[in-house]
Amino acid sequence: MKTLGIIVVLLFGSLLIYCTLDFPPWGDPQAPASMHVSPRYIERTMQETSVPNIVTAVLADYRGYDTMFETVVIFTAGVACFFLLRIFGRIESESRMYRHIPTGITLRISKDAEPPRESREFERIDLAWVPYDVVVKTSCRIIVPFCQLFALYVIAHGHHSPGGGFQGGVILGASVILFAISNNMRLSFTRISEKMAVLLCGLGVLIYAVTGALGTLLGSNYLDYGALSRLFGVDPVTARSLGILFVEIGVGITVMAVIITLYYNLASAGRHDEGL
C-alpha cells in the first residue's frame, strides 16, 4: 500500500512538473498576462484609485469580492475552531497553584480548600509550574506596544508599501499571543476576553460588507468605493483610496480576532483556563 502511494505521488508530481513546462517563462514580456492584464493595472491604477501599491489596489478594489470572501473564509475558520474545541461549562482541576511573590514559595491548594485572596502577595500560576521570570515579562512588556504600533502602521500604510489588512491583523494578533505567553492566559482574558474576540471576528466582516453596501445605497455597484465620494465630499478617486482603507481595517480586525480565538482554543484545549 505504501509503495502504491509513493508511485501515485511520483506519477502525479511528474505530471504536474511536465505541465508547468507549457507555462510561459517567468517574467516573459510576450506572455498573455504581461500583454493584456498587467499593463491595464500598471498604467491606470494610479489615476483611477491614487494608490501607489498596485497589489493593494487590485486586492481590495478591483478584486474586492475575492478579498471579501477570503475574509469570510477566515471568519468561518475561526468560528469552526471555536465550535470544535470549546468545552462549555467549567471543569475545575484537582488543585490550584499559587506563588507567594516576596519569597517565591509555590503553594498547591486542593479544589475544596479556600484559596488565598488575590492580592499583591499571591498570584495564581499555571499547573505546569512556571518559574518567575522577570526578564521575559519585562522585555515582552516593552516589545508588545511597539509590535502593535507596527501592526497599525502596516494596516494604514498598505496603500504605499507592502502590507495591508491581512499582515497587520496577524501582527496585532501575534502581539496579544506574545502577551499571553509571557504572562499567562488568565491575564490576557482580562485584556481581550473570549466573547470580545469572537464578536470582533464578525465585526470585521461586517465593516467590509457595509462599506460595499454603501456603494449600492448611493446608487452604484456593490463594492464600488467611488460612490462614497458623495458621503465624504471628496472626488471619486480619493473616495476609492478611502474605501480601500476602510476595507483593510475590516480585514485587519477579523484576522486579529481569528488569530486570538485560534490561540485561546488551541493552547488551552478549549477549556480556557491555562495554556502555553
Binding site: V55, T56, L59, P162, Q167, V170, I171, L266, A267, A269
Partner: peptide
Amino acid sequence: AVDVAFTEASVGAGVSTVLFVATVFR
C-alpha cells in the same frame, strides 16, 4: 512578490508555528 513574502513571514513562519507549538504542548 513582497506582499506575499510579508504574509508568509507573519502567518507561515510566525503565528502558525506558535499555534503548532501551543497544540503540541497539549
